[in-house]
Structure formats: structure tokens, C-alpha cells
Design a binder for these strands. Structure first.
Lengths: 139, 139
DNA sequence: TATTGTTATACTCTATAACTATA
DNA sequence: TATAGTTATAGAGTATAACAATA
């Protein structure tokens, strides 16, 4: 049976993304995080006090979807919010959030390593440049 | 604000995939096709008589999701089914399906060209190899 | 007026389970 | 017993719209 999608980079992109999102979710399950939550935790860990709106913009998560996500992580005691002004909140890690963050860093590193190892060694150096070019500088 | 996801190929993979799936869906909207339906149309066009189950396996679409998808495309007069044996069906394009297929080929070509043009010219030659390596040979 | 956050809701895609019929 | 297809349903992830409060 002929595979007409075999030569389409766009199709490979989709299949690769789906495969690795599943792999990442499996890795994050022991931490009790979805990959969206993990992304927020990474950004907050690297930017204590970052505003919810700024985090959402960086990760391309809509305000309406950030709200319940942040509320969930706050309820689990991973994040805490501090009023920046009368309408905006800054986020930072709690003690539990910091512990989880440390575990998350390890899990993400293992995930990214496994991903890169699938690529022929001599081409690995180009992977990030190519993948970044496929989405950056137009959002 | 620091972006801790900047150096993660896995994150770039996800963002790139999301961006281009949206772009493809926009291109397919005038044809009245979702990208999943488009993938099925491409496979049937290249493999007249292919069994529903085989198409689903190639595209990693579950049986339970192939059923309504095929029914929809059949109802729109794009696909027709022929009994292979008492339980399996082969799919082929109708006349309308063939016309749509021709349009689809053009849309997909335009999409893939636009995608590749985002990649620096000297790296384009590696893109398909890298993206394929990221998902093939373990499904 | 624009920004920030919240709530409610809808839509798509995908996943699981149970079922029938046939190989 | 395994395969093929169908149906119903549930769960993510994401999208829109309307709203209140503040800058």
C-alpha cells in the first residue's frame, strides 16, 4: 500500500508532535501534571512573579484557559499568586511547587534527550534551528 | 522575561505542529475538509480500494473514529465503499471525490511549500529526514 | 478605552468500552 | 479467536462571548 504522506514534512511534523506529546504526558503523569501545566510551572520557575497574562502570551494559552489552570495549580499548592496591581496577579512557586519544579526539570531533560536521540547523530545539530524556524517570528 | 522553553526541541515541535495544523485547516476550509478527512482522501486517492481498517492503521486513526469520518465523506458523495468480503469495505473516490482530490493535492502542495520556506535554505534538505526520524519506526 | 481575570459554553480530536457480524 | 465495523460516550485541549473590575 502506497503512503502518499511519506514525503510531506507537514505530516511528519504532526505525527512526531503527537507521539512526543503522548510520551511527555506519560512521563509527567507520576508528577500529576499535564504538559500545559508543566509549561506554566517551567515559566514561573524561571520567572518568579511573572504575570498570568504574560505567561499566557508566552505559551499561547488564552486568558479564559489560564484561569482554571492556575486555579487548579494553586489549589494543589504548587503556585501562589501575589497582587501586582488591582487587576493583575504575579505567580511564584510554593515550597511544594519548588520540589515539583526540580522533578519536572529532570523529567523534561529526559524527554528531550530521548527525542533528540531518535535523530541521526550528524543531523541533531540542525534540529532545534529547523523546529524553531517552523514556528517562531510570527507566533 | 526569560523563556525556559526556548531551547527545548520538543516544545518547538509542539508549537510548530499547532501552527501548521491551523494553517492547513484554514487552507482546507474552502474545500470543506478537515485535515483528518484530507489525509483519508489522499490515501484513498493513492490506493483505490484500500480497506478502511488499513487506512486507519496507516494514519493512526482508531476504528471507532474512522466509522463516522468515512460515513460523513460518503454522505457528501466524496467516497464510495465496496464490500471486500463479508465484514471489510474498500474505499474509492467518486467523481466528485476525484475533483476534490485534485484540488486537495494543490492545497497540500501549497501548504508544504509554505512550511518549507520558513526553514533557512541551507537546512531545508535535512528537514524531512529529521521529522521522519522523530516518529517513524515505532509508530 | 484597553487590560486583566473569570465564568460559561461549545467544538474538535481522540480514547475506551461494548456490541454485532464475519474470517 | 481474531478481525472489521459501528455506536455511544467521555475526556482533553482549545475557542468564543459576555461580564466585572481596574489601569
Amino acid at each position: 500500500m502506497d503512503d502518499p504522506l511519506r514525503l510531506l514534512p507537514g505530516y511528519a511534523l504532526r505525527r512526531a508532535s503527537a507521539l512526543h506529546m503522548n510520551a511527555l504526558n506519560a512521563r509527567l503523569e507520576p508528577l500529576g501534571l499535564s504538559y500545559t501545566e508543566a509549561a506554566v510551572l517551567l515559566v514561573v520557575g524561571a520567572n518568579p512573579g511573572a504575570k498570568i497574562s504574560a505567561i499566557g502570551q508566552m505559551l499561547d494559552i488564552k486568558r479564559a484557559n489560564m484561569s482554571p489552570l492556575v486555579a487548579r495549580m494553586e489549589a494543589r499548592g504548587e503556585l501562589q499568586r501575589t497582587a501586582v496591581d488591582g487587576r493583575a496577579f504575579g505567580l511564584s512557586l510554593t515550597k511544594d511547587g519548588s520540589d515539583l519544579y526540580a522533578q519536572l526539570i529532570k523529567a523534561v531533560h529526559a524527554h528531550e534527550t530521548a527525542l533528540l536521540e531518535r535523530i541521526p547523530a550528524e543531523l541533531r545539530q540542525y534540529a532545534l534551528t529547523i523546529l524553531d524556524a517552523l514556528w517562531t517570528s510570527d507566533n
